[in-house]
Structure formats: structure tokens, C-alpha cells
């Protein structure tokens, strides 16, 4: 990445990365694991590994990303799934054992696993 030399370049970069992000969420699934210290101590790393393993085993293309603490520490580990324009769904108290069902039902069949959902975020309103 070359250095940004002007505000103009920063604004262009913003437009570019915004486009990239939209393209990514529209075309693939984004799986987000809360990996702040609270998440990690509750077992988020194991959950993320289970997600990666499951995606590999089933040869699913999805974007896996990590974020910091969103504040609902009592429900960590948190796992979010975002597909296209659908609301971003948050699963709480996720264990590695729950991952295959979430991937199977939500990512493959597009059906939210209601039993484990703790919340959803309408996209475009997070600001």
C-alpha cells in the first residue's frame, strides 16, 4: 500500500474499501467471531477453529473475520453470520459442538437456528 498523499486519496480509498466490503457481503457469507479478551476466555478461539474446520470439510466459501468486544460479554463466545442483505444474526454462548448445526442450517440452507440466536442487526443501521 503506497502512502496516502492527500485527503483526496483517503476519500478514494474509502470509496474503494466500501465497495469491496459490500461486494463481499453480497456475494459470500461473512462469519464473524467476537475475539476480544472476553470472547477468547469464553472459548472463542475454539469456536473459530471449529468454524474453519467445518467450512473446510464442507468446502464452503465464506469469509471468516474477527472483531473486538460488542459488550454482551455474558453471552460470549458470540458468532455472527451475515449473508447478503439479510440482517446480521448473532448467536450467543456458542460452543464448538454447536458450529456444525449453525453452518448446516444457516450457512447452507439459509435458515436461522432460532434456539441459539441472541440478537440480530439490521444492516445499514449499525452506524
Amino acid at each position: 500500500m503506497p502512502k496516502l498523499k492527500s485527503v483526496e486519496e483517503l476519500r478514494n480509498l474509502r470509496a474503494q474499501v466500501q465497495k469491496d466490503l459490500t461486494a463481499r457481503t453480497e456475494t459470500t457469507t461473512t462469519i464473524t467471531v467476537g475475539m476480544g479478551t472476553c470472547g477468547i476466555s469464553a472459548g472463542a478461539r475454539e469456536v473459530m477453529q471449529a468454524v474453519l474446520q467445518e467450512l473446510n470439510a464442507r468446502e464452503i466459501k465464506a469469509h471468516v473475520t474477527t472483531v473486538g468486544c460488542i459488550g454482551m460479554c455474558s453471552k460470549e463466545p458470540l458468532l455472527d453470520i451475515q449473508q447478503g442483505d439479510e440482517p446480521r444474526i448473532t448467536y450467543g454462548n456458542v460452543t464448538p459442538k454447536m458450529v456444525p448445526r449453525i453452518i448446516e442450517e444457516h450457512v447452507i440452507h439459509g435458515r436461522v437456528v432460532d434456539d441459539w440466536v441472541v440478537g440480530r442487526i439490521a444492516m445499514g443501521q449499525e452506524e
Binding site: R14, V17, D20, L21, G36, V67, G68, C69, I70, L78
Partner: peptide, 15 residues
């Protein structure tokens, strides 16, 4: 927090 990947400056800039 909890919305962007803290390791990615691009996501911060996008928002």
C-alpha cells in the same frame, strides 16, 4: 467495536 475487524485498517476507513 464488535462490528469491524480491528486488524483491518480498511474496515475502519470504510466506516
Amino acid at each position: 467495536c464488535g462490528m469491524i475487524n480491528p486488524e483491518s485498517i480498511a474496515e475502519y476507513i470504510a466506516l
